[in-house]
Design a protein around this nucleic acid. Structure first.
Lengths: 199, 199
DNA sequence: CCGATATACGGAGGGTGCCTCCGCTTTTCA
DNA sequence: TGAAAAGCGGAGGCACCCTCCGTATATCGG
């Protein structure tokens, strides 16, 4: 099979870059013609590379997932299993916080394409698996919650941005969730950050 | 001021009903002209009542919130505070499960209109408030998690439908969350349903 | 009950974005 | 270097969006 043409590769990249920017700014319903314009390519080129809006969403989405995966791998070197877990979840929240309009687009893509969902889920599962397994092996957390469950919880949080205070709220939810995972009578309330009292 | 015209009221209702059906079947991007057709009114009539797609989403959304509120009020009569809370969260999951395509539309509406969000949030907050407060007053759960936090957690779950097994997963998450809320050394694992072992 | 008038109806039509198709250009390979 | 494969881009047909306004109907005072 031939080597892919250099211009094709370049254009594909440009479109992806433009799409990320345009969707971030204008949300998931932004015009694809605007994306093509921003990328400096014809609308036909965009459609050849990404036959549907969803395909484009998907491609951008895969990039995002890759970043999350890398982040997980890096955090796997944290010392205390349960703290590494908490740290990763917290970091994920902050990562998501930077995405604004993209999130709707990504959610849409994942919604309509279960292969994509399971692939990404696998990828993240593999990456974060060590964190969870270590904590379970160390008998620090309950063993009946799967990685999928954990990812779903995070997934949910992915959808609450754009409210004032959402980030603090989600961080609090992460703490509650981690506490819920803990095993045994040790219910120490010691946690990394000072916390506001209720409301 | 005059009494509103009977035909106007009737048409508004028809459109709302049709919108719920059409969005449920076809998702949030369904054509508004299809909604008007299904309602048996002209496109102009639809647009007079709901000037934008979002306005229509919003109206349907308010209905859904009302149902959730009613459900909460009804469950407030449950005996054990913490069980009532768990029951409501579990029931909400099931309620959401029946909505399918609607959820994307509803999420979109809430996303773009913060007044709507805060109003609905208030309404649910008021309705569920008793459940949480009773549990806190009884010292059964920690006191630094607000109603808003709890609603956000549910909100997140709202977005995970359409995956095989999502419902069981969410129910599991609810249990974890409730366990995380509990106060004191009583970490009894007794819970209403038998549970699968990890993956 | 009836006329006046406020209110509502519906769909034609201009505009925009979607997506396909294909003649032209560029790149690759022998 | 030339032929063929691969890619480019935008014209054009279509669906949907939304406004505008002539027509129809409900309400209300008399």
């Amino acid at each position: 099979m031939r080597k892919p043409r250099a211009d094709a590769v370049r254009n594909r990249d440009r479109v992806l870059e433009a799409a990320k920017a345009v969707f971030s700014a204008g949300g998931a319903e932004a015009s694809l013609e605007a994306v093509a314009r921003a990328a400096g390519v014809g609308i036909g080129t965009l459609y050849r590379h990404f036959p549907t809006r969803e395909a484009l969403f998907e491609a951008v989405y895969r990039r995002e997932v890759q970043e999350l995966t890398d982040l997980a791998e890096q955090l796997k070197k944290e010392a205390q299993p349960i703290d590494a877990l908490r740290h990763w979840m917290r970091s994920t929240v902050k990562f998501v916080a930077t995405k604004k309009g993209m999130s709707a687009a990504l959610a849409l893509a994942a919604d309509k394409n279960s292969e994509l969902y399971s692939h990404s889920s696998d990828q993240l599962t593999r990456a974060v698996g060590g964190l969870l397994d270590r904590a379970i092996a160390a008998r620090e957390i309950r063993s009946d919650v799967s990685l999928e469950d954990l990812l779903r919880a995070l997934w949910g949080m992915y959808h609450m941005q754009d409210r004032p205070g959402w980030q603090a709220s989600v961080l609090r939810l992460v703490d509650v969730f981690i506490d819920g995972l803990r095993i045994g009578p040790d219910r120490s309330r010691a946690r990394p950050r000072s916390r506001k009292s209720r409301r």
